[in-house]
C-alpha cells in the first residue's frame, strides 16, 4: 500500500518538477528525523537528478551550528521543526530571500512575510486526554482555562520543548507578555508534571501519570498506530483559541549557498502536490497547499485553518523573551 502510494506520488511529482532539473550536489541540514523525510528527499533526487547529502540533527543544534559556521557553512538548505528556529536564522541574516513565485500561492499562515523561508508542512497544537480518567466534556473552551482548580496536578508540560516554547511565543504575540506570564504562573501553581518532550507526555497519559497533555498533533496517531486500544484521544479548544496554534516545519535556503538554483528547486519540490500528499498521509501533518487528499485522522486543512488562531509566524522568533517569561514563572 505504502509502495503504491509512493509510486503514485512519484509520477505526479515528475510532471511538475521535470523542468527544474539541473544536476547539482546539495547539502541539507535537517532538524526533522531521517525516518520521516528521507523518503521524500529520495524522490527529489530521483526526479531532478540532484544529489542530496543530508545532515540529520536536532533543530536547535543545527540552527546553532549554522550560526557558528556563518558564511562558511557547507549547508545549502535548512529544514527546521518550528517557526522560531527559522526566524532565529533569518534574524541572524543567514537566509537568502526566496523567489516570490515559490510561496505566492500559500495561505498567509504558512509564509514568512520577509520571504526568507516557507512552511513545508503544518502541525497544530492539540490537547491529548486520557479516555480512562477524562472525557471530551472536560476540555475547556480555551487553553487559559487550564489554570482552573479542577486540572490541578493532572496535566503535563514540556518547557524545554521547542513546540511548547513556540506556542508560548504565539501567546505573547496575541495576548501580550502580562497575560502570558499570568497564565504560566497559574499553570505552575496548578502543579503540572514536567516532561522532556511530546512523546514522553503522550506516553505518560497512557501510563496514568497525567490526564491531559499539550502536544503537537502527530504524536498520538503514532501511539494509536502501534496499539489501536491506546487509552487516549486528542482534540482542540474553541475556534481561534491560541491553544490550537498552527506551527510549521519550515525550509529555507542559506545566503552562503553556492547552489542557489538547486536549493530553490528543493524548496519548491517540498511544496509540490506529491510532497504535500506525502507529509499529509505518512507524516500525519497538515499540507500547506490546497487540493491534497486529507489525512483521515487529522481532517480537512480548511477546517483546521478555521480552528487555528491568526498569527504572524515571523514574530515567533523572539524566543529570548519567551524564555525570560518561562524563567520568571520558574518553569525553566
Amino acid at each position: 500500500m505504502q509502495k503504491k502510494l509512493l509510486t503514485g506520488i512519484a509520477l505526479l511529482g515528475s510532471l511538475v518538477i521535470a523542468p527544474l532539473a539541473s544536476a547539482a550536489s546539495l547539502t541539507v541540514y535537517s532538524g526533522r528525523g531521517e525516518a520521516l523525510v528521507q523518503p521524500i528527499i529520495d524522490q527529489f533526487e530521483k526526479q531532478t537528478g540532484n544529489k542530496v547529502n543530508v545532515r540529520y540533527g536536532d533543530t536547535a543544534q543545527l540552527a546553532v551550528l549554522i550560526q557558528e559556521e556563518g558564511d562558511r557553512s557547507p549547508a545549502d538548505v535548512y529544514w527546521g521543526q518550528d517557526a522560531g528556529a527559522m526566524g532565529a536564522l533569518a534574524n541572524a541574516g543567514l537566509l537568502a530571500t526566496l523567489p516570490e513565485d515559490i510561496y505566492k500561492d500559500l495561505p498567509g499562515v504558512f509564509t514568512s512575510k520577509t520571504g526568507q523561508w516557507v512552511a513545508a508542512s503544518g502541525r497544530s497544537r492539540v490537547i491529548v486526554y486520557s479516555t480512562e480518567r477524562a472525557s471530551a466534556d472536560d476540555i475547556p473552551a480555551s487553553v487559559f482555562d487550564l489554570t482552573d482548580e479542577k486540572f490541578k496536578g493532572r496535566f503535563g508540560l514540556a518547557p524545554t520543548n521547542g513546540g511548547f516554547q513556540s506556542f508560548v511565543t504565539a501567546m505573547r504575540v496575541k495576548h501580550g507578555d502580562e497575560a502570558t506570564l499570568a497564565w504560566l504562573k497559574g499553570m505552575k501553581a496548578n502543579e503540572p508534571k514536567i516532561y522532556r518532550n511530546n512523546t514522553t507526555q503522550v506516553q505518560a497519559v497512557g501510563d496514568g501519570e497525567i490526564d491531559f497533555a499539550l502536544v503537537n498533533n502527530y504524536y498520538l496517531p503514532r501511539f494509536v498506530a502501534a496499539n489501536s486500544e491506546y487509552p487516549a484521544k486528542q482534540t482542540y479548544f474553541a475556534e481561534g483559541d491560541i491553544g490550537n496554534l498552527m506551527n510549521v516545519a519550515g525550509v529555507a535556503v542559506l545566503k552562503s549557498s553556492k547552489n542557489q538554483d538547486a536549493a530553490n528547486a528543493f524548496v519548491q519540490y517540498m511544496l509540490t502536490p506529491a510532497a504535500q500528499q506525502y507529509f499529509t498521509s505518512f507524516v500525519n501533518e497538515y499540507p500547506v497547499v490546497e487540493g491534497i487528499i486529507p489525512n483521515a485522522v487529522l481532517g480537512d486543512l480548511d477546517e483546521m485553518l478555521k480552528l487555528a488562531p491568526e498569527i504572524d509566524l515571523d514574530q515567533l522568533a523572539d524566543l529570548e523573551g519567551t524564555l525570560k517569561l518561562l524563567r520568571d514563572a520558574e518553569l525553566l
Binding site: 536547535a60 543544534q61 546553532v64 550560526q67 536564522l89 524545554t160 524566543l319 529570548e320
Partner: peptide, 14 residues
C-alpha cells in the same frame, strides 16, 4: 545541564 541545554536549544544562543 538543563540550563545549558535550554540556552542552546531554546534560545539558539551560544
Amino acid at each position: 545541564s538543563y540550563a545549558i541545554f535550554t540556552q542552546y536549544s531554546g534560545a539558539f544562543d551560544r
